[in-house]
């Protein structure tokens, strides 16, 4: 299997605070990597460093062997990354379809092809019937699915999901877990930051646990969740 992502010694500092401290990880095609840790552990910062939204002070990131450490986010997107945002950010003045058209233009030629791709993505996430609705009017669960459609419309090889399960009711959660599992079978590599343990355990091939910016454990979901250091990190910070 191809190595999709490799990060070595990623360090991010804000002023005097080290938010992410020498974290390294690798991810192969068709794998799902779960990123967990208590609040303030640096998960989101690491996630943003990997996607380029926060500059990494130290370390090296390669995407399918290509060094993207110094690349801005849009170049990483062009190189094959897709991402969602924790606080969903639809383009509020646009319709649902137009929201997906924006990324759909990246890997297509002309507006007809882009439109076809956008509609296909909406269909995949189950929003096809709402294509003409103003994005502002969508409820939380549908906004999440719109986020996914936007991330998928750039035709990524590796997908970054930032807490897409949070706040969903049980049926919607089941549906979302099933959907992400479906993406893996298409060969996508996925990095997910998640608080919902059920999703992590069911989906992840590999889990990394962060606490105070440091990686304190890694392994299979089962191994990690029974690790003493992890239990201590979660209980100790509360």
């Amino acid at each position: 299997m191809l190595e999709a992502l490799r990060a070595e010694g990623i360090t991010v500092r804000f002023g005097g605070v080290t938010a992410v401290d020498h974290v390294s990880l690798t991810l192969k095609d068709g794998e799902i990597l779960g990123l967990i840790g208590p609040n303030g552990a640096g998960k989101t910062t690491l996630f943003n460093a990997l996607t380029g939204f926060v500059p990494a002070g130290e370390g090296r990131i390669t995407l399918y062997g290509q060094d993207v450490t110094r690349d801005p986010p849009y170049q990483r997107t062009r190189a094959g990354m897709g991402r969602t945002f924790q606080t969903e950010r639809p383009f509020e003045e646009l319709t649902v379809l137009e929201n997906v058209l924006v990324p759909a233009f990246l890997k297509t030629k002309g507006r007809h092809e882009a439109r076809a791709l956008a509609l296909e993505m909406l269909d995949q996430v189950g929003l096809a019937d709402r294509a003409e609705q103003p994005a502002l009017d969508l409820n939380l669960a549908r906004r999440r699915r719109l986020e996914l459609a936007k991330a998928l419309a750039v035709r990524p090889r590796i997908l970054f999901l930032d807490e897409i399960m949070a706040g969903l009711n049980p049926p919607a959660l089941r549906e979302m877990i099933g959907f992400v599992a479906g993406l893996r079978t298409q060969g996508l590599a996925i990095v997910m930051v998640e608080h919902i343990m059920q999703a992590i355990i069911e989906l992840s091939d590999h889990v990394i646990v962060l606490a105070s910016g440091k990686m304190i454990a890694e392994g299979t979901p089962q191994a990690v969740t029974s690790d003493d250091r992890v239990i201590e990190a979660y209980l100790g910070t509360d």
């Binding site: 849009y74 170049q75 997107t77 945002f85 950010r89 003045e93 646009l94 990324p103 936007k150």
Partner: peptide, 20 residues
């Protein structure tokens, strides 16, 4: 669409591969 995306949200536009 690039213009509107940049206007609405630059971060989200960058995630769509757009250089604002």
């Amino acid at each position: 669409y690039q213009l509107r995306a940049v206007r609405e949200d630059e971060s989200s536009a960058m995630a769509a591969g757009i250089n604002p």
